[in-house]
Simulated scan of single mutants.
Amino acid sequence: MCLRLLTGSPRTRAQLADALRRKDIPDEVADHVLGRFTDVGLIDDEAFAQMWVRSRHAGRGLGRRALAAELRQRGVDREIVNEAVETLDSEQEERRARELVMRKLSSTRGVERTKRVRRLVGMLARKGYPPGMAYRVVKDALESEGADTEDFPDTWDAD
């Protein structure tokens, strides 16, 4: 059963343990199987977390906070989660936030400025970016577009 689950996609130890529990596999048997799978390298939560962070950041544009929440939801240990999300440096995270805003910016043209700001900052917030970074990136994008940003909130450095 574990091999079949791992064939479809990588899984964490906790995800496999949950699957075994749902099939009423005794805990001792599940622990033995999961231990053996870990010993031979078929289960590696650290590698899973690293791959997850790279993949979801590049593909979905998720920030550190959202990535950490997804990993914790999959049962990855908090220390492993912290190590994995720390592999994303602030520059990478901000560069990806800028890309996301620039992609979305054109679809907000013609919308009232405060609504544009709210939509763009909200999009970044839902993707797990810190509020200070989100405001700063949106302000910069609107300035580069020539939009008025004089009465923006003074929370740019509130990362």
Rank of each mutant, 00 (worst) to 15 (best):
G132S: 06
V85Y: 13
R11N: 05
A68I: 07
T87I: 10
D31P: 00
S55E: 13
L124R: 05
D157N: 14
L105F: 10
D39V: 12
F37S: 09
D39G: 11
A97Q: 00
I25W: 05
E70F: 04
D159H: 10
A68T: 02
V111E: 12
S90Q: 11
W52V: 03
P26K: 13
R4F: 08
N82V: 01
K127P: 06
K127E: 05
R103E: 11
L62F: 14
A49P: 00
E145I: 03
A125L: 15
G61S: 06
E93A: 13
G128A: 05
V81F: 05
L34N: 06
R54T: 12
D45S: 01
R60S: 13
R65Y: 12
R118M: 11
M133N: 02
L6H: 07
T38Q: 10
M1W: 04
E46S: 09
E94F: 03
G8Q: 15
V33G: 03
E94P: 05
T108I: 03
I80C: 02
A158D: 15
R116S: 05
F48G: 03
T108K: 07
R74I: 00
F152Q: 03
C2H: 08
D27T: 14
A14D: 11
Q92M: 14
K115T: 15
R56C: 04
A147C: 10
G146W: 06
K127C: 07
F48E: 06
H57G: 04
P131E: 08
G35W: 04
E143T: 10
M102Q: 14
D154Y: 08
G35R: 04
D24M: 08
A84V: 01
A141S: 11
P153D: 00
V117N: 04
E112Y: 09
M102I: 04
G146C: 07
D89R: 00
G8C: 09
R54G: 05
S144V: 11
R64N: 06
G132K: 07
V121R: 02
A17S: 07
V111D: 11
Y135W: 15
T12H: 09
Q73R: 15
K104Q: 15
T38S: 15
A97F: 02
R60E: 14
D140Y: 08
K139I: 05
A14H: 11
E93K: 10
R95C: 05
T108W: 00
S144N: 15
A68P: 07
L100C: 04
V138A: 05
R64T: 10
S107R: 12
A125W: 15
L124S: 06
G110S: 10
M123W: 02
L71N: 00
R60M: 12
I43S: 09
L120N: 09
G41K: 08
L5T: 07
M51W: 12
L20T: 02
F152Y: 10
L120E: 08
L16W: 09
E94W: 00
D151P: 00
L6E: 07
D39P: 02
A30P: 00
R118V: 09
K127F: 03
K23C: 15
Q50S: 14
G75E: 01
D44F: 04
D27S: 15
L62N: 01
R116C: 02
L62H: 14
W156S: 15
T87L: 15
A19D: 12
R116P: 00
R36H: 14
A84Y: 05
R11S: 05
T149G: 08
L42E: 10
M102W: 09
M123C: 06
